[in-house]
């Protein structure tokens, strides 16, 4: 099916009605399997039982970036291809992505307390995610600043693209800043060699959370389409009364 066909709200509604429960069920199954496997896995020799937070924290970190990337692609769709669903997808990605980014920060902080002895460390990775969260908040507040969803969509698309270009620069400079201010002795987790007993549960639960994201994203898109339809109806109604 060509992408432009999805612009038809009825076709999208039909597709969403099938896909949302499908992704939801997939998410429930995969997250369940992944977490049960994760909780059965032996504790990490360095992290101990705290490694159990990894099964949610790492997927949230991946999803934060993936949702921002999705938002940037949707922004291209708005500005370049002018696909009518693109800004709806962008708004939904910002809303759901911000929630996952927030969860990444909170779980990271709760993981950090026993590991580092404090709730917050200006670790380059946590700091980059924090800046990403600020970028999400900027896009969301820009969405709220306009009454007209079409103009809000184009404004948010430009901001999302500028922000996306900035993400690698922020990452680079935060890494540099960290190397200046902190000796390399800060304990690091997420070693590149991860034991299969932990890797498989991680990948399965990550797949589950991606499915959950897909379900929430589609549901938020469907809501946004309904909201716009309601807005159009209300404007028509007002025009009718005036006439």
């Amino acid at each position: 099916m060509p992408l432009i066909d999805l612009a038809n709200p009825h076709r999208f509604q039909r597709l969403a009605a099938v896909l949302i429960p499908l992704f939801g069920a997939l998410a429930a199954a995969l997250i369940g399997i992944g977490l049960v496997m994760g909780f059965r896995a032996p504790p990490d020799y360095q992290q101990g039982e705290m490694v159990k937070v990894m099964y949610i924290h790492v997927p949230f970190a991946w999803l934060s970036l993936a949702a921002y990337t999705l938002m940037a692609i949707a922004a291209l769709g708005t500005i370049v291809w002018r696909h009518p669903l693109a800004d709806v997808a962008g708004k939904a990605a910002a809303q759901v992505g911000a929630a996952f980014c927030f969860l990444c920060l909170v779980t990271g902080s709760l993981w950090g307390r026993p590991t580092w002895g404090t709730y917050w460390v200006w670790d380059p990775r946590l700091t980059s995610v924090l800046v990403l969260f600020l970028l999400y908040l900027g896009v969301l507040s820009l969405w709220r600043a306009f009454d007209d969803p079409n103009r809000a969509g184009r404004a948010a698309a430009i901001l999302a693209l500028v922000g996306f270009i900035n993400v690698p620069i922020v990452k680079f400079s935060v890494d540099w800043w960290n190397s200046i201010h902190q000796p390399a002795s800060v304990s690091r987790f997420g070693t590149p060699t991860i034991d299969p007993s932990m890797l498989y549960p991680l990948l399965i639960s990550a797949a589950g959370f991606f499915a959950l994201f897909a379900a929430l994203h589609l549901a938020a898109m469907r809501n946004e389409l309904l909201r716009r339809r309601a807005r159009t109806l209300r404007i028509l109604k007002a025009a009718e009364v005036e006439a």
Partner: peptide, 24 residues
Amino acid sequence: AAMPRGGLLSAVLVLPMSIPLLIF
């Protein structure tokens, strides 16, 4: 430009992206 109250919003949008300049 097209917003009635854009003043504070532009600061919120710009500050996170200016972090690299501040750092260096």
